[in-house]
Every structure is written in structure tokens, then in C-alpha cells.
Nucleic acid binder design. Structure first.
Lengths: 195, 195
DNA sequence: GTACTCAGTGACCATGTACTCACTAAAAGG
DNA sequence: CCTTTTAGTGAGTACATGGTCACTGAGTAC
């Protein structure tokens, strides 16, 4: 690769890194292209040389992120066959990626259909994994006879709620997921476990 | 009252009515002042004669709405001492006002602090009513020994989720709350009831 | 060494939107 | 009546923001 294309790749990566940082700070909707350019210390026009529109930039970043999410989910699915440990692994994951997921939780209803679809599709895979575990538990008569879909909706909605209201719930730089994880796990287990 | 002030009041009410309709259609954030003026068939400038800023207009409308919400809640609280009927009354209420509440569910994280605070305060009153009923149920040993706050958070988060994702979940002009009410009630009762 | 290529630049443009203000005309007042 | 007041008007302003384009200068090819 010659000097020129190498430099071009560097700039492209710089834009991606900087944009991701901006988006995590302020959300996709409220970050401006001028802001990204300024923070990356490049000209405003340079950004559009690499990404024709702001949306294309957002989609590329989210695709990258969701790809990594997908990998972690595969691990999660492979390793966890009981709810309790699956829950723990998933909440650990959410807590680590909380900066990004709280943005998604808030902004999801405002994204263009295609983008929202992608995000919901990833979520559906995780939901489905949990549902399967619960179904099997019910079949083995180890869990209560509840609707797995509804149970999972309760769980995911609650996590979504904490994430979207993050700025209200968390003090300082603490994690909302960390703050509520024990209570959420406990109540959710009460919902599905017998006795 | 003379002709002038009477006409002024009429215009003011016209703006309030029209703005409310616009906000319900497109949300507070995406409705423009020009749109409201055009739909009300008044000059753009007239709007600012009656409401100094868009935010003041929004706050006035939401205060009106929340006031009515408050009245209905008082009735709800007065009439319902058991969860099952309180739930039904509340979901009926949500279903009737779904147009407005789905906007609030989506946009809440983006409102200025004071406005969001007002909305959450009203919600807190309702949550608190439910929590009291559950606490009493637990004390009388009629309900399971769960954390009332967490149980209510599960319920409200789920309703919030359905409302904010309304455009995905509902087909045609049907109500999301109507669509999911039975399942939500059933699962919630399983969470809190014994057996 | 010379001509060509293209990443990068930043002033500029188009658009959208909240808000203003000089003006108009109808109503109020004496 | 004639003057004053004021609801209403709508062109205009200020600003934000996504996106463009003629130009520059370092790198590449010959």
C-alpha cells in the first residue's frame, strides 16, 4: 500500500473512532458532523470525503458495534444453558457496553426503519435464547407455567427503561445496570421460578 | 368582556387545540411552530404573540393534560383498593389516552429537566398507589413476598416499552395497550400472586 | 524534473426553524 | 368623529447544520 492510501485509511479510522466517541457522549441524533470534524481535527469537508452522509457514517459504526455484540452473544449462548448464569453474563455485557446501549435505548424509536430493524434483530436473537432456556425449564417442570415471551418482555423492558433513564438514575459515573442488577435478577427469578 | 379580549381568548384556545393535535400526530420535538400556525390558519407571528416560546406552549399544553390525568388518577385511587381492578382502570385510561402517552414515552428522555420532572412526578403518584396496594396485600399475606417497587417497575417499564414502540407493534389504528393488556395483566398477576 | 492525481481544505450553500418587528386595520375610548 | 390601543400579519432575521466545490499541495508515475 502506498503512502497516500495508507494515510487515507488512517483518516478514515480516525473519523470512525472520533465519531463513536461523540455518539457515545451525546447520542447519534444530537451529534453534529461539524463537531466530529472539529474533535478529530480535520476539515468539515474531509468527513464527507470518507462518508457521503451522516447516516452512512452512523450505520457503519453501528454495524461494527453490532457485529461485536453478535460475537459476544454467540459466546453467551454457547456457554449458558441455565437462566441464572445467562442473566449474569448478559447483564455483565450490558454493563460493559452501557454507554452505547443507553444511547440506543433512548434513540431507537427515532432511527430510520432499516437501522432500527437491524438493532431489534440482534436483540431478538438474545431474547430468543432466553426464551428457549425458559421453555425448556417449563417443560422439565422446573419453572412456573408462565408465558416465556411475556416474561422476557418484562425483563428487557425494565433494562431498557433503566438504560434510557440513565441520566436520572445514576449518580456520578456509576453504572445503572450495576446499580439495579441484583434487584432485577431477583424479581425476574421470582417471576419464573417455582415456590 | 369586550370584543377584542374575547377574540384574543378564542385565538389562544384555537392555538392550544391545534398544537395539541399536531403534537399528538408528530410529537412535541418534531412539530414546528410554522406547522401549528398553518394548521390553525393564523400567521406564524400570531403564535408568538400568545406564547413567547415553543417550550412555553408545550408546557402549557402538558400542564393541562397532566391536570386531567391527575383528576382521573384521584378517581382511580378512590375507587380501587385491589390490584386487579386498579390495573384494569389504569390500562383503560392509558388506552384512551394512548395517542398522547406514546409520544411521552418516546420523547421523555429528550425533554428539558423541568418538564420531564413534572411528568415523572405524576407517574410517581400512580406508581405509589399501586405499590401501596401491593404492600398491603403482602402484609395481609395474600400476595407473594416480592419487592413492590421492582414489581411496579417491571409493569410500568413494559407498558412504556409497548407505548414507545407503538408504531412497530400496532397494526392499522388499533391500540397497543388493548393488544397486549390481557397478557401483561396475566403475567404481572403471576409475578405478585401466590400459587 | 515535469505532469498528473487525489486527500484534504474551508469558505460557501441550501434548508429548516424559532423568533422579531414595522406595519395594518379593527375596536375602544373620549 | 378623531385618536389611541392592540390583535394580527408575514416578510425578514439569526442561527444551526448537513452537505458541496473550487482550490491546494504533497505524493505518484513517467
Amino acid at each position: 500500500m502506498n503512502k497516500r492510501t495508507e494515510q487515507k485509511q488512517n483518516t478514515r479510522q480516525l473519523i470512525l473512532r472520533t465519531a463513536k466517541a461523540c455518539f457515545i457522549d451525546k447520542g447519534f441524533l444530537e451529534t453534529t458532523t461539524a463537531e466530529i470534524a472539529s474533535r478529530a481535527e480535520i476539515a468539515h469537508g474531509t468527513l464527507f470525503l470518507h462518508f457521503k452522509t451522516k447516516e452512512i457514517l452512523i450505520v457503519e459504526i453501528l454495524d461494527n458495534e453490532l457485529e461485536q455484540v453478535n460475537d459476544k452473544i454467540q459466546t453467551l449462548i454457547a456457554r449458558t444453558a441455565d437462566i441464572s448464569s445467562a442473566l449474569k453474563v448478559y447483564l455483565d455485557f450490558l454493563e460493559r457496553e452501557e454507554d452505547l446501549f443507553s444511547v440506543l435505548a433512548r434513540e431507537l424509536p427515532f432511527y430510520p426503519d432499516a437501522l432500527r430493524g437491524k438493532i431489534l434483530f440482534r436483540e431478538a436473537i438474545i431474547r430468543n435464547h432466553f426464551q428457549q432456556i425458559i421453555k425448556e425449564g417449563i417443560n422439565r417442570d422446573e419453572l412456573r407455567d408462565i408465558d416465556p415471551i411475556q416474561a422476557i418482555t418484562f425483563l428487557f423492558s425494565t433494562l431498557n427503561y433503566y438504560l434510557s433513564m440513565r441520566k436520572i438514575f445514576r449518580e456520578e459515573q456509576e453504572s445503572v445496570i450495576g446499580k439495579f442488577r441484583d434487584k432485577v435478577i431477583k424479581t425476574f427469578l421470582q417471576l419464573i421460578e417455582k415456590g
